[in-house]
Amino acid sequence: MAFPADFKYTKEHEWVKIDGDSATIGITDHAQESLGDIVFVELPKIGAEVSAHKSFGTVESVKAVSDVYAPISGTVTAVNDELTNAPEKINSDAHGSWMIKIKVKDAGEASSLMSAADYEKYVAEEK
């Protein structure tokens, strides 16, 4: 499993790519694999506030609903509406299927996130 090195990761299996005061968020390939076929995604509206470690949306498989947590706090500036109609994209390319972009509130929060290497180790241990 290749986890992009320029992403940061959470223990709840989200990835975040931080670019200045903008951050792009999705769920990891490991997350999509354990969820199975994703059938529905519920995402916030542009302008919504998200807080670190709090749920901002859900992903659904046939028999389960899972919360998606924000790696860091901020204001939603873009939502990937394409996923609403084609949630299967997350299964085929989790790291390329971003869910939301936010304007970061406190860049310092990112320091508690895992690097790709740490996350890979974390996933291996979790198994």
Partner: peptide, 11 residues
């Protein structure tokens, strides 16, 4: 019938 395609039914 055999097992149903529930994924498409949901998507």
């Amino acid at each position: 019938v055999e097992r149903m395609d529930e994924v498409t039914a949901n998507r």
